[in-house]
Design a protein around this nucleic acid. Structure first.
Lengths: 218, 218
DNA sequence: GTTTAATTCAAACGTTTGTTTAATTTTGTG
DNA sequence: CACAAAATTAAACAAACGTTTGAATTAAAC
């Protein structure tokens, strides 16, 4: 039973991410999961409740990782930022499906779903906040807008995972490249960019720079 | 005639952005536009072609602004970055509707639509690239990954415009705040964050920093 | 004013949608 | 084995979907 339920969740995850929630029919899901159409109502009640269950099903994972990362006292705040970047790039690239649902699809749905998505994001934000404030207390990081900084990380990755056509053009890749190659080209570039970006953004030494014109000529 | 066509486009823009492409019926659009259902097929051929026309209808605007900004020789590269941030934050916040379609919705549609969206983004990227390379040639900006930097700008804004529930929680706003207040709270914060972020990210003086551990003691 | 073309409309088209039904099979328990 | 509960099924449901039709109306051209 738990087996079938999970089959349905995985199938739904793939299809929702590929064709959107409205673009996916419960018949598509049933077929991909290899179960009868009626099983979806039987297990989940409705298509919307299926999406809700899907959010719960996947939500715990990222939080667990972030919690562990926070507890690890052998890592400096800078190390943690690097790990954070690696984790999110890898995770989003390998779970494009779920991430698309979580970060775009769920915002146009029922109140229950929007609230669930909100709570998951807030819980994750909480963990990342701890990493940054820790770096600030240790005198390594400067004062930044933490929630927006998190938005920058997620948003940068999303902007390159949401539309393969555009990304392929940027990477000078053929549009029908296989997913594995696609990830292998995009991943290091995203990580390098985010690391460079966050180092400059967070470094305490870059604080208060009155900025430029110290190089008047042209 | 051009009048009705435009009415339909505007109605479609609002509804697509609010409920997604699949979530919006042509009947919804016809009603909101105050035209007969059949007029949509009459003018546009199909619902997908309507989306295509919508992209064309709105695409030119941003490009024109960016082109002008580039030509203006009275502005320093830093000024241009500031203007760029202001422009995109304002534009996206005031055209949430269109932006959502352009940057998320169109990626799951037909080849024609995905290509059209891609071309529009590439043309805009081209203009922003000029601003940054100009700053580099003038010795103000360091070497950065330009396309990903543009992705960071767009992505940061998107991550806070795609889900109002989450954003309201961050801004400590009531969820049913009116759109005007919502914008007025979000806009300055986004602008300040992006300006701070890009100053650190682009500043030539922040280049090559071997980073931290120059402050060993905790 | 007549004729031709462009526009608008209500109605209906055939599909597809999410969900329910009621009968059947499988499973677990005493 | 028997019996009750759970799981599974094919079929049917009404509702909504995008699109087409063909007649009615308006506008333009001569």
């Amino acid at each position: 039973m738990a087996d079938k339920r999970e089959h349905i969740l995985v199938a739904a995850e793939d299809l929702f991410a590929e064709k959107g929630f409205d673009g996916t029919s419960v018949r598509d899901i049933a077929q991909q999961a290899g179960v009868n159409l009626a099983m979806i109502s039987y297990y989940f009640g409705s298509k919307e409740k299926l999406l809700e269950s899907l959010l719960e099903f996947r939500a715990g994972y990222a939080y667990g990782i972030l919690e562990e990362l926070n507890k690890d006292e052998s890592l400096s705040p800078w190390d943690k930022i690097d790990r954070l970047v690696d984790f999110y790039v890898d995770r989003i690239l390998n779970n494009l499906r779920f991430h698309n649902i979580m970060y775009q699809e769920s915002s146009t749905r029922s109140v229950e779903i929007r609230n669930k998505a909100k709570d998951i994001k807030l819980r994750n934000l909480e963990q990342i906040s701890k990493i940054i404030t820790d770096g600030q207390q240790k005198g390594l990081f400067r004062q930044v807008d933490i929630p927006l900084t998190v938005g920058t990380i997620m948003g940068t990755i999303s902007s390159y995972t949401l539309s393969k056509f555009y990304t392929c053009a940027i990477l000078a890749l053929n549009e029908d490249v296989n997913d594995e190659q696609y990830r292998q080209r995009l991943s290091p570039r995203l990580k390098a960019h985010l690391r460079q970006l966050l180092r400059a953004h967070l470094d305490i030494r870059n604080d208060g720079l009155p900025m430029t014109e110290d190089r008047k000529g042209l």
